[in-house]
Amino acid sequence: MGELEIRNFTSHHEALINKVIAMSANLDYESSDLQKKVVFIIELDEIGECQLASDYLREQMHRVKNGIPSELKVMVGALIVISSGECYTKSFARKFMFLCNQMGCEFIGHPLVERVANYQNFKTWSKTLDEKLEDIEVIQIQKLLRRLSRYQTISRDRLKVLVLHAGHKDISNTLMFWDLIKAKLSGFKMDIDELHVEEGKISDCYGCSFETCMYYALEKGCFYGGFVVEDLYPKIEKADIVVWICPNYNDAISAKLMAVINRLTALYRSISFSEKYILSVIVSGNSGNDSVAGQLIGALVVNKGFRLPPNFAAMAIANDPGEIMQLNDLNDRVESYVNNVYELTNKIIAKK
């Protein structure tokens, strides 16, 4: 598209809105993709909500429930979220992105610029940028708008897909769900590599000093070496799409997969994830699929910079081993998700 669209969900901050409008007018836009490029500017109230944004999402959800595609389906987005307190910017952003994504919106990696009270979240940047906190915010927004304006679908002849899991196929409903999906991907132009994060192969990040981490990152390594450096890092680096197989553990992803995310920091400091997409299969015993999806969005998209493609997560509720196979609408869920993956992969391949 030839311009960047601004969706303003604020009642104040007119000066900021005008700055964003002025900055967006001076950008060069990549125009080969058909998606609208949209920045959502959201102001949170004292309990971390935004009525204007909620009304918009409710309207779009109503369209979908009535068989009308949401306008979000043709959007690729980024966010600016403002809070008068110290909390809620990230939790609201995760929820907002998840809901938009379920209706077809794509998000760039590192899609969020947040502002908390007194610009405190920019203090870390002030250690390297000799600027006022207010000016650092403007710099970060400029970078965000520039990346959004230049964002395009990646182009590949054939896709490399890495699947990460920490379960056992004979008892894991999540892996059974994934196997049904994978079986229908056989005709797609992709090479699927599954990596089992087994007990004893992965330990969490020990929190080395920044200098130590950067030293090893220069060689795409880690002080603790082993499975992470020898197997995980090379496979992540080669992958175009990383699929996270996530059963719900206490409304979060498993400790092993969380350790994987934490250990990605060293690789993140040596390469960019900006041309890699994430997908996920999530199964909860009772509820909480959105909690797990939000954790993935926060850790991998907001913080690590992976792309979030439309409808990134296949989700279901199943408790006892094998219960997933008894779902009445299981085939519909599988077909729907396979169609979403096909749309993504076909768009990538078609660009060649």
Rank of each mutant, 00 (worst) to 15 (best):
L218V: 14
K220E: 14
G167I: 05
I136W: 00
K201P: 03
D179L: 01
E198A: 15
S149L: 07
F223Q: 11
D135V: 15
V228W: 08
K169G: 10
K143T: 14
D193W: 06
E198G: 13
K220S: 13
L162I: 08
V229F: 02
Y206Q: 10
C213T: 10
V163W: 00
G221I: 09
Y216R: 13
Y224C: 10
K169R: 12
T153K: 12
E211W: 02
I139N: 08
R147P: 02
H196E: 15
W178E: 02
G225Y: 13
D204E: 06
Y151W: 15
L159C: 13
Q152F: 11
D179Q: 07
L164T: 05
Y206A: 06
V228G: 04
M214G: 13
D193E: 15
F188H: 07
Y215F: 11
I181W: 03
L195M: 12
Y224E: 05
D179G: 03
L195W: 01
T153S: 13
G226D: 11
M214I: 11
I154D: 04
I202L: 09
L185D: 07
E211P: 02
S209T: 10
A217M: 03
R146H: 13
Y215M: 13
Y151F: 14
L162Y: 01
H196G: 07
G187A: 04
R156W: 01
D157G: 08
F227C: 09
L185S: 01
E199G: 14
K184V: 04
M176T: 12
E219I: 07
F210E: 10
K182G: 08
V229Q: 06
S172T: 06
C222K: 02
L175I: 05
D157Y: 09
N173V: 04
L144G: 00
S149T: 11
L218G: 11
D170Y: 08
K132E: 10
G226C: 13
L133N: 09
V229C: 07
D157V: 12
G221W: 04
S172R: 00
M176Y: 00
E199D: 10
L175W: 00
D191W: 01
L164H: 00
R156F: 05
I202Q: 09
E219V: 07
H196M: 15
Q152V: 15
M214C: 11
T153F: 09
I139H: 04
L175N: 02
S172K: 02
K189S: 12
V163F: 00
R150E: 15
R147D: 14
I171P: 03
A183P: 01
C205E: 07
K201G: 13
I139T: 14
Y216N: 08
S203A: 15
Q142W: 02
V138C: 04
E219Y: 12
D191E: 15
L148G: 08
S186P: 04
I202H: 01
Y206W: 10
E134W: 02
D157A: 13
W178I: 09
G200P: 04
E194V: 11
W178L: 10
D179Y: 01
Q152E: 14
G221K: 04
A217F: 06
W178F: 05
K201F: 14
R158Q: 12
K220G: 11
L144W: 00
L175E: 15
L195N: 05
F223E: 14
I202G: 05
K160F: 06
K132N: 12
F227I: 03
A166P: 00
V163A: 02
S186G: 09
T153W: 08
V163L: 02
Y206G: 13
L180H: 10
K184G: 03
G187S: 11
R147W: 07
L133D: 06
I181S: 03
